[in-house]
Write a protein that binds this DNA or RNA. Structure first.
Length: 293
DNA sequence: ATACCGACCTGTCAGC
DNA sequence: TGCTGACAGGTCGGTA
């Protein structure tokens, strides 16, 4: 189940492989669901584009697209900034937005490799390879944004870079549990069930605590814990419980570091108390009843 | 406006 | 062995 660290790992992997490549054509499955932009429109908009940077915004993977240009005769005349990496956003003509949902995968494959079951999108690239979107449960989403839509910023704030003051402001006056608030993508985007539980454990906060009632100090601790756990997961290559596979098809291995998630009934690694599991906001929630108050 | 809850979807696994 | 049903959870839309 891809959350921020997994999406970041995948986006980086895809970026390494396809940046600078071009999209020759695009094929989409006949299903209705994964497509926020109608498939025909998306195929039309993607064909002939050049892939710029591929990166993460919240839980979304964003591929910047530029018009494939006919090689300028007067070299450098249309250049802005440095060559190669980091093209200025003013050049971006469109953006392909991929949300992996629960089971989505984004794979870069040689065209000879057979299509996996549940393949919903195939972008044929100028290099001869294919960028494929595979999603058994069809919770994932694909969309194409044009320059008129503006640069995609995601629904909420970035957990890795938000300040303590802004973080606290997100929860002010909120009457829902801190766990449910962390999962609300319009507040913070990128945090899912696993890292919500893990960060609350590290911050010593009971998931049922009302978000708007937490002190400034406890929220600062939560923001630090959240950032620490997300960054260590990114370093570990993304987490995996069952479905996550990165762009290489290599499984992440952060789950060995989970301290509460999926450990119901097992001893707390700090105090030995049995980890408890409850349902909060419709999601299974794991915590230590002694360490988290 | 805010909060809450069921539906969506299919693979996996426990239990019979 | 083979079947059934519970469960996983990110997001969306309907309802309170």
């Amino acid at each position: 189940m891809p959350e921020l660290p997994e999406v970041e790992t995948i986006a980086n992997g895809v970026d390494r492989r396809v940046r600078g490549d071009s999209i020759v054509s695009a094929w989409f499955s006949g299903y209705k669901e994964p497509f926020k932009t109608p498939p025909a429109e998306m195929a039309c908009g993607l064909a002939g584009m050049r892939i710029g940077r591929v990166y993460r915004v919240g839980k979304h993977i964003v591929a910047d697209l530029t018009k494939k240009r006919v090689r300028a005769r007067s070299a450098g005349a249309t250049r802005r900034g440095k060559a190669g990496a980091g093209r200025s956003s003013s050049e971006v003509q469109a953006q392909w937005i991929v949300h992996l949902g629960m089971t989505g995968r984004l794979l870069v494959s040689a065209s000879e490799v057979p299509l996996p079951p549940h393949t919903h999108a195939v972008l044929s690239l100028g290099s001869g390879r294919e960028l494929r979107f595979v999603d058994a449960r069809r919770f994932g989403r694909l969309a194409l944004r044009t320059v008129e839509d503006g640069i995609f910023a995601g629904p909420g704030s970035e957990p890795l870079t938000i300040s303590d003051a802004d973080f606290a402001a997100l929860f002010r006056g909120r009457k829902l549990s801190i766990k449910a608030a962390l999962l609300n993508q319009k507040l913070l985007h990128g945090v899912g069930n696993i890292y919500a539980d893990e960060s609350l454990f590290r911050a010593g906060i009971r998931p049922t605590r009302m978000a708007g009632r937490l002190s400034k100090e406890r929220l600062e601790g939560l923001r630090r814990a959240l950032r620490t756990v997300l960054e260590s997961a990114i370093r570990a290559g993304g987490s995996s419980v069952s479905d996550y596979v990165d762009a290489d098809g290599v499984r992440g291995f952060f789950q060995i570091q989970h301290r509460v998630y999926g450990r119901e009934g097992e001893p707390c690694l700090v105090c030995g108390t049995r980890i408890r599991r409850i349902v909060l906001g419709g999601r299974s929630t794991h915590y230590c009843p002694k360490c988290q108050r």
